[in-house]
Nucleic acid binder design. Structure first.
Length: 859
RNA sequence: GCCGGAGUGGCGGAACUGGCAGACGCACCAGACUCAAAAUCUGGCGGGGGCAACCUCGUGUGGGUUCGAGUCCCACCUCCGGCACCA
């Protein structure tokens, strides 16, 4: 996943001072004796390998982590949080008989490696390889059940090839609004469209629009990225450049609608909905000196209240409509706006600014001539870059009108009376044929009126913009595009991948073509054709990696049809991946981009589901011990290597899950790690011999008592339910309760201990394997069947019922499960505290909820 | 400003569709073992009152619904996250 840049790219793990010291005897168990052993065992035996040929009759479970950007800082404790959660589920589902796909890889293109290269001259490929090695070592030290044979790297030529292939699919496709889906442009060629017409509708197209150019980064940025980089201290300015765009806006409605079928947190769906930003309204055509000036409004019912119009300062018509006497003023204002940063224009916007152009427009509904202004509170990028201003019922227009003394006309009466600035639904007034109509009807009536006269039409507007897809960087996928005679054309698939040329110097050139402009030999494709020098953004590789895991070495297709159909399609849900876990920082961009690519590929017949990710869970941020965000400057960063060194991988895994609910933000506590470490020691001693080989003396082949079976099966039930519900913290509590209950047993039957070891195994797999082996099993427990909770051990003949008098709890009674109210009351009267409360009083009412509560109301 | 999410012991957190608030862990206190410590084991641990069995208050604040509210409703406060002139 794309990450904010970090300076320094060498692995800087290294345990802190004092972290290796063992004082006194071991706290519990010697994890160092077997964690590496089992990691080697799993690797050697391919325990978690998912073979290409599998039993397709079994259910599948595709559980995916957001793959990391392998930064130079190495793994931080935030990574293992989500990774442990998915690992528990992967191991659990495997034991339940699922075919599990649980892969890992590297999102390895990106600016940090390039910036490091600029500083040190070291090739980004070298730093990337070193960082990947560190990350892989760290993840393997945690004992994750990944199928490492499926490891992928977005920078591998074999991967780049298919990223570029997907780009070509988009380049060769257009969005057919009638079919509401993407289709190949060959359809248009058959219809006799011209080259220019086709270029204008491709899903990947070239645009000359103004973009966000950062001189010190030497690249352009997507709108969505600007703030992030600006916050890092980089400058970003608007500048018109030729750029590649992806037509994500064509999919806006589907990206919105298809959220409904996904099991995502509602808050994330809402973020996406807001980002897509659908508004219903109308376009209205004003006459502006013979031109038709179209504006978008969500309130066509207020058209009678339009007292002026505003164009964005960058609006292309400003030049031509400005009256000679206003030209100097207008030019000065436009220059001032161009110099403003978005921050100045947006955040520090207390005062509305603008100037009159000298032009007037004609309101189509009443023929009134109204002044046309330019003001920077109107954005060029949304709607038509022009608005009709209704100061009576729009807060921003009202502020503007007050600042410049423009007339305010009230055309909507609020439910509680007429009011200036009322923006809700009310009743139309001073609006001719709309008078007396409630807002929703008035909107409809006006829209129809406009449509009937050709003065407007119904319109759905989205905030979502097309995706600026090109970057002026070195360390990214080059575009498989050539330029010839001023036109672009696609390279044939047979020439993929197009790899970046070797460079010595990665510095920004200041040339908007980017660093690849230096590689003149590489650019020269033929005497007449030149390569595109832009590269793709880091999002490209992460847009489809979940597909490549399914069939990572396929050289014929990006993924085989059969494998894709099984791993993405066999759940019968709109989304293919059964569970996707990652941070909220990707709530909008990554997840929206990936959904967009997925839909395009789906439309073009390459995929079997319309959505990539069925269920999404966001893990919460882990804070430092001081409750603040971990950061180098605060010195509160916890290094997972140190924790593994002191307490072992199982303890780290267990602690990360025990801290609290997965989704929640929570602070780290080394004391907490010690706590779970002690628990692992107790589990160890419950089964294994305290020191040395063999089993604890209490372990026996005796038949378990009923009480022991009840204890075991309560744990099975609770742990199973909690894993299914991803409540790992309470699952671990249940395991702790089991150990607390079992420790005093003079005899510990294997028939109880063995299932308990299996319950522990997804959480602390190394310890569990070691105990499993000591219990006499020759094979890994990873394929042992998961224990089943049996109701006969959980059902009880008697139930505990709390007893209240006048709503206050006074005790509890144990009664037969099917006891009636009378029996319960009789039992309750035996409790001294209850009897005292009832003394000398008459029971007015008995509320009896069997198995829960008995409430006696007395007077 | 708008939109989300969350406020429970000293701390992290439990509490199924309203039904014994504080499971589990940390910290702390006491005890056992030890020359002593560490480790381990046992017990205690929301506030106030009582020798005690018990009584009483208590889930951000103020109201409400209910036999009964951490849980539902209304109003507010605080913190966190997102968007930010989107017409």
């Amino acid at each position: 996943m794309p990450r904010r840049p970090k300076t320094g790219t060498t692995a800087g793990s290294g345990a802190g001072p004092g972290h290796h010291r063992w004082t006194g005897t071991m706290a519990g168990y010697d994890f160092s004796a077997f964690e590496a052993k089992w990691q080697a065992y799993w690797a050697e035996h391919g325990t978690f390998r998912t073979p290409a040929e599998i039993d397709r009759s079994r259910p599948k479970f595709y559980v995916l982590d957001m793959f990391p950007y392998p930064s130079g800082a190495g793994l931080h404790v935030g990574h293992p949080e989500g990774y442990t959660a998915t690992d528990i589920l992967a191991r659990y589902k495997k034991m339940r008989g699922f075919n599990v796909l649980h892969p890992m890889g590297w999102d390895a293109f990106g600016l940090p490696a390039e910036q490091y290269a600029i500083k040190t001259g070291q090739h980004p490929r070298a730093t990337t390889e070193a960082n990947v090695a560190t990350f892989r070592r760290q993840l393997q030290a945690l004992g994750f059940a990944y199928d490492w044979d499926r490891e992928i790297n977005t920078t591998d030529p074999g991967y780049v090839r298919w990223t570029q292939w997907i780009f070509l699919q988009l380049y060769h496709a257009w969005f057919d609004p009638e079919a509401n889906r993407a289709r190949p442009v060959s359809v248009l060629e058959e219809r006799g469209w011209t080259r220019d017409q086709i270029d204008a509708v491709r899903l990947a197209y070239v645009s000359e629009a103004p973009v966000n150019w950062s001189p010190d980064l030497g690249t352009v940025l997507a709108n969505e990225e600007v703030e992030e980089w600006r916050a890092k201290g980089h400058t970003v300015e608007r500048r018109p450049l030729r750029q590649w765009m992806l037509r994500i806006t064509a999919f806006a409605q589907r990206l919105l609608d298809d959220l409904d079928g996904l099991d995502w947190p509602e808050s994330i769906k809402l973020l996406q909905k807001n980002w897509i930003g659908r508004s219903e309204g109308a376009e209205v055509v004003f006459d502006l000196g013979g031109r038709e000036l179209t504006v978008f409004t969500t309130r066509p019912d207020t058209l009678f209240g339009a007292t002026y119009m505003v164009l964005a300062p960058e609006h292309p018509w400003v030049e031509e409509i400005t009256a000679p006497e206003q030209r100097a003023t207008v030019d000065a204002y436009r220059r001032a706006c161009a110099a403003k940063t978005d921050l100045e224009r947006g955040d520090l916007n207390k005062e509305k600014t603008g100037v009159f152009t000298g032009a007037t427009a004609v309101n189509p509904v009443n023929g009134e001539a109204i002044p046309v202004w330019i003001a920077d509170y109107v954005m060029m990028g949304y709607g038509t870059g022009a608005i009709m201003a209704v100061p009576g019922h729009d807060t921003r227009d009202l502020e503007f009108a007050r600042t410049f003394g423009l007339p305010v006309r009230l055309v909507v009466r609020a439910p509680d009376g007429e009011s200036e600035g009322f923006t809700g639904d009310g009743t139309s007034v001073n609006s001719g044929f709309l008078d007396g109509q409630p807002t929703p009807q008035a909107k409809e009536a006006m829209t129809q009126w406009l449509e009937a006269r050709g003065k407007g039409r119904r319109k759905v507007q989205f905030k979502l913009r097309d995706w600026l897809f090109s970057r002026q960087r070195y360390w990214g996928e080059p575009f498989p595009i050539l330029w010839e005679d001023g036109r672009h054309r696609a390279l044939p698939e047979s020439e993929l991948p197009v790899l970046p040329p070797d460079l010595e110097d990665f510095r920004p050139t200041g040339d908007p073509r980017g660093p690849l402009a230096r590689a003149e030999d590489w650019i020269r494709y033929s005497d007449t054709a030149r390569r595109e020098t832009n590269t793709m953004p880091q999002w490209a590789g992460s847009c489809w990696y979940y597909l490549r895991y399914i069939d990572p070495r396929n050289e014929e297709r990006l993924v085989s049809k059969e494998a894709e159909a099984y791993w993405m399609g066999a759940s019968g849900t709109p989304g293919g991946v059964d569970l996707y876990v990652g941070g909220t920082e990707h709530a909008v961009l990554h997840l929206l981009y990936a959904r967009f690519w997925h839909k395009a590929l789906y439309d073009l017949g390459h995929l079997s589901t319309p959505e990539p990710f069925q269920r999404l869970v966001n893990q919460g941020l882990i804070l430092g011990e001081d409750g603040r965000k971990m950061s180098k400057s605060l010195g509160n960063v916890i290094n997972p290597d140190d924790v593994i060194h002191r307490y072992g991988a199982d303890a780290l895994r267990l602690y990360e899950m025990f801290m609290g609910p997965l989704e929640q933000v929570k602070p780290w506590s080394m004391r907490g790690v010690e706590g779970v470490y002690r628990f692992l020691g107790r589990f160890w001693r419950l089964v294994g011999h305290d020191e040395g080989e063999g089993l604890a003396a209490e372990v026996s082949d005796a038949a378990p008592t009923d009480e022991q079976m009840r204890t075991l099966h309560a744990a099975i039930r609770k742990v199973t339910d909690d894993i299914e519900g991803m409540r790992f913290n309470t699952a671990i509590s249940a395991l702790m309760e089991f150990v607390n209950a079992a420790t005093p047993w003079p005899s510990r039957p294997r028939a109880v201990l063995e299932p308990a070891v299996l319950l522990l195994s997804p959480f602390a797999p190394h310890l569990a394997e070691e105990l499993w082996e000591r219990l006499g099993h020759g094979e890994s427990l990873a394929t042992a069947p998961w224990p089943e909770a049996e109701d006969r051990w959980l059902a009880s003949d008697t139930v505990e019922v709390a007893v209240q008098v006048n709503g206050k709890t006074r005790g509890a009674v144990s009664v037969p499960k099917d006891a009636d109210a009378a029996a319960a009351v009789a039992a309750a009267r035996e409790i001294p505290a209850v009897a005292r409360q009832l003394e000398g009083k008459a029971i007015r009412k008995e509320i009896y909820v069997p198995g829960r509560i008995l409430n006696l109301i007395v007077k």
